[in-house]
Structures are given as C-alpha cells and as structure tokens.
Amino acid sequence: MRNYILTGCVLLGSFQMTAQDLLTILDKETPKSENVVTATFKGTRIVNGHSIKNRKSKELEFIIAHRFGRVNTGFEELFGLDQANIRFAFEYGVTDDLTAGLGRSSFEKTYDGYLKYALIKQKKGANNFPFAVSLFGSVAAKSQKAVVGSERTFAESLYYVGQVLIAKKVNASFSVQITPTYVHRNLTAVAADPHDIFALGFGTRLKLNKRVSLNAEYYQQFDKLVSIVARNSLAFGVDIETGGHVFQIILSNAITMVEKSFITESTGNFFNGDIHLGFNLSRTF
C-alpha cells in the first residue's frame, strides 16, 4: 500500500512539473531584448521649451500655438485675450531620432528653425541606461522692420540657441528633464547687454491619469539682459491627449514661444499676475 501511495506521489509530482514548466521555459527562452523607454513626455514641448520627444520618421506635424496677453490687464482687455502672439510651425521626423522644425511667430515677426537629435536613449533590460540625452539647436530671425535710426543687417537679426536635453522617466507617471542652455544674440539692444547667456532649465511632467498630465518648467538664467527687466521663465501646462492630437493649455510668464525669447526676454512676474494664457494645438499627418 505504502508503495502505491509513494508511486502516486512521484507520478503526480512529475506531472505537476510538466504543467508548471511550460511558461517558465518560455520565460527562460525569451530573448533579452533592450527596452527603449518611450513616452517620457507626451508632447515635443514640456511647456514652452522642448522635451526629448521626437517626431517619428516621416511624421509631419502642424502646430498652431497661441499666447494671449497678460491676465492681469483686466476686463477691458478681456484678461489678455485681445492681444495674441501666434506661432504656426511644421515639424517633421527626418528619422526616428532627428526632428526638423520651421516656425513663424507673429511677435516681432520672427522666423525660427530647429534641429533636435536623440543622442542617447533611456533603456531598460539588456543595455540598461538610466536617462536620455538629446541635442537641440535653433536659429531665430527677427524680421520686423526696425525703427528709423536703428536699422540692422540680416546677420544682426539672428539669434542662436544650443541645448542639451537630459531626461529621465522615473516611473510611468513621473518624468524630469534638466536642460543646460546657451543663447547667443548677434545684436544687443544696449552695449551692456550680454551677447551670450547661459541658463539651466528644469522641466517635469506628472501624469494625472492615462490621458492628462500636468507639466511645469523653469529656466534659471546665469546672466540677464539689462535693457529690460528680465525674469526667469516659469510656465505650467496641462497636456490632454485625444487620439491623434495632444492639446496643451498653458500658463506662462512669457508671451513668446521661441527659445531665445522666452528664456532670456521674459519680463512677466508670474506671482504678480503677469500670466499669459496659451495653448498648443497639433495635428499629425
């Protein structure tokens, strides 16, 4: 009798082994793939400044963005809505890692072009790497006619920005980015204005649910223009994803959307009510 029970146990045990093993074998046989961390940010901008997100290869995006006047201008100006800076732009994924953009802002009739390249990607699994690094460069050209007496050449209308975007998706809902920035202007308003300004940007996004995230962005300047009361750029945004679009609603102390401008030329005091309401609308083709 004892023999039968023992035999039974072993039989049962070996069958059990087979039953349990199949998925374990598949686990073992799964190739160790490297997982590139995606969707660190939903949009190509955190708020005003660029995020590490690129357009995919051959993807064309049309962006219409608005920044209205200051909300503290009161009822007569309908809280800033009477005044608006509009920028429309085309952004194109040359490859999955390289995005090119061309835009035009109504503010100072500024044209801008940029290139953004994903240098290093955050990875999990095989070739684990803790953060992502992208390189960004832009040129802006002011085309608004100068007042008589202060005419400028085309070269004097140019501004350059270089950025290193270092981002980390900490978990599914929280991402951060640090953005060392260099801004150069060929022409300054007064001699005391610096031609070169270094700044350090901090950006973050917090996902409130699967489709809505809260973003914040701050650029600390290490040198400031003296011809204006320059302040550091501070902005908050809400990203709402609706299928093929990302819709961003923005509160910012800058009326501009071009890097050289909102980083170094913001004059609004956010906590004094110098807040510009704005939105970014994009359509991907």
Partner: peptide, 28 residues
C-alpha cells in the same frame, strides 16, 4: 506528451502602422 500548450507575448513587440497608435497602445 500531455497536449499542453503555453504562449508568451511581449506587448511592446506589437508593430502598428502609425507610431502614435503604438505609443497609445502601450501607454494607455
């Protein structure tokens, strides 16, 4: 021997026509 079968599917390996669809599939 037993006729048992097991399948394992890595969700991130699904390829879509549009990159945005793929991102939404995985993210949302």
């Amino acid at each position: 021997d037993s006729g048992q079968m097991a399948i394992a599917i890595l969700m991130q390996s699904f390829l879509f026509e549009k990159a945005l669809m793929q991102e939404h599939f995985n993210e949302n």
